[in-house]
Design a protein around this nucleic acid. Structure first.
Lengths: 266, 266
DNA sequence: TCAATAGTGTCTCTTAGACAATATCGC
DNA sequence: GCGATATTGTCTAAGAGACACTATTGA
């Protein structure tokens, strides 16, 4: 990319201060499940050698939830995933360091940022998390998010700002939610086995769950249904495939008001 | 109050834009319980003839939770009440109208607000709610919040902006929380009767609860303890007084991670 | 037949929920 | 005694949780 092109983009960025709220942003903790571990989608920005959460500023014509949905789609190409609002992060000084890093990067392409550049101000960030099936996502970077990939959510790399804390807070919220409500629909492929969903719950909750009681519960409430298909897993007994009963699932989510706290926002 | 004094205060306000975040504020839904109804504390601002939620801007040296605690103390004189964050409100145009009203008021005292006055900008607001025992609070106004009083939360007066929606969202969250966790400690006086706490739960949940099962549950888990005192209520059988067992209560709140979602923030 | 994984039934205990009669108080 | 309110027990059904053996698969 030419330096001129970069300068153009930066000019645009500065002017976009008018169409965005200042001092507020959203960060989106995109969680996936793969290989018996929780994964989180992180990006490495053009201007620094550290990982961070996908996030963005909020257009004055959008709600915070819409801003989060835009970020989510940019990184995953997925639309209409439920977004859960889980916390606000506002510790004074939490954005410290951003200004220096951005300035440095801009100067590299011969560009001097304005003195009162809106992006250099302190920000309060609204935290959202989304759940998605790991293999449905092709992590997708762009000009500012040069690299974008999955990491183990329980073993995070060095991260900018307070983003490690934000990821941990999201995981705590997910753990809390799933201990009361059977959310998790989005984390599994359409067809899955009992051992898979069992191990998903164990991974999220961080504790062993009795296999018999677990299977009994999910099938008793009618949340999942067994198909007449099995998955061939090599030298072992072939497990049955299951699907969620979406109607029961949706009814469950609705009846339990999952939407009300840390829940869906349109 | 003299016009000069008012001008001084307004000058201060304009300059305080440097020490506050722009585009973000907190609103605090202060809920009390009295006479078998939920009450909410509202204020009428100097500059308009309508009620609104206590709220405030956020100093750059504070977190949003600290800002909410300051608002809470200003209106109730109470410190250290738990604050529950429950939602973010960001519908575009939600602060519309504020600018005109404030301008009008300023001109009345011969003051022309600056053209890019920070308070006239659109705001995203973080919603907190707090619970408090009705009679412990002496609603407390100030220069900007000229009047301050309790209203029935289920029968709200005309309110500015989207504040009715915010109150309703807080009540939904309280209802959700209390249906899973025995929060409500702050809503009752130290000593209370079974019928009182029973009717509190009925009021919040908006449905009848069987008296026998209700009493059984609360005493079984050890949440409340009966004293050897009764309250004289005139021509009827005198009910026993109860107190919360604070240790059991705190353990319950902690074990159930009430803090994680919609929960406490330091 | 072995190693590895999948699948399943019973018992107990606790809790939730339905249900109504008796006790107390002041008049 | 009356009107009003407070208090309390039993039964049933459902769910939670503890517990371990059998079935299947391919090598």
């Amino acid at each position: 990319m030419s330096t001129d092109k970069e300068k153009d983009i930066l000019e645009m960025l500065i002017k976009s201060g008018e169409e965005h709220y200042h001092n507020v942003s959203v960060d989106v903790v995109i969680l996936g499940y793969h290989d018996r571990t929780m994964k989180v989608l992180l990006q490495k920005p053009k201007f620094a050698d550290a990982w961070m959460l996908p996030g963005g500023y909020i257009k004055r014509t959008n709600t915070t939830a819409e801003a989060a949905a835009i970020v989510l789609e940019e990184r995953t190409r997925l639309k209409n995933l439920p977004l859960y609002y889980f916390n606000v992060f506002s510790k004074p000084g939490r954005s410290r360091g951003a200004a220096d890093k951005i300035t440095e990067d801009m100067r590299k392409v011969g560009f001097e940022p304005p003195k009162d550049f809106w992006m250099f101000d302190d920000f309060i960030t609204i935290g959202y998390f989304a759940l998605t099936e790991f293999s449905r996502v092709e992590p997708s970077g762009d000009y500012f998010a040069e690299e974008c990939q999955w990491f183990s959510a329980y073993n995070l790399p060095e991260m900018m700002y307070d983003h490690k804390e934000i990821v941990n807070s999201a995981i705590m919220s997910l753990r809390y939610l799933i201990s009361f409500h059977p959310i998790g629909y989005e984390l599994l492929p359409d067809k899955f086995t009992l051992p898979e969903i069992h191990s998903l719950y164990e991974t999220i909750l961080g504790k062993k769950l009795d296999e018999r009681n677990f299977a009994k519960k999910l099938t008793n409430i009618g949340l999942i249904k067994r198909l007449n298909e099995r998955r061939n897993i090599g030298a072992h007994r072939a497990p049955y495939l299951y699907v969620y009963d979406k109607e029961v699932y949706d009814k469950y989510v609705q009846d339990n008001n999952v939407a009300i706290l840390g829940g869906f926002q349109e």
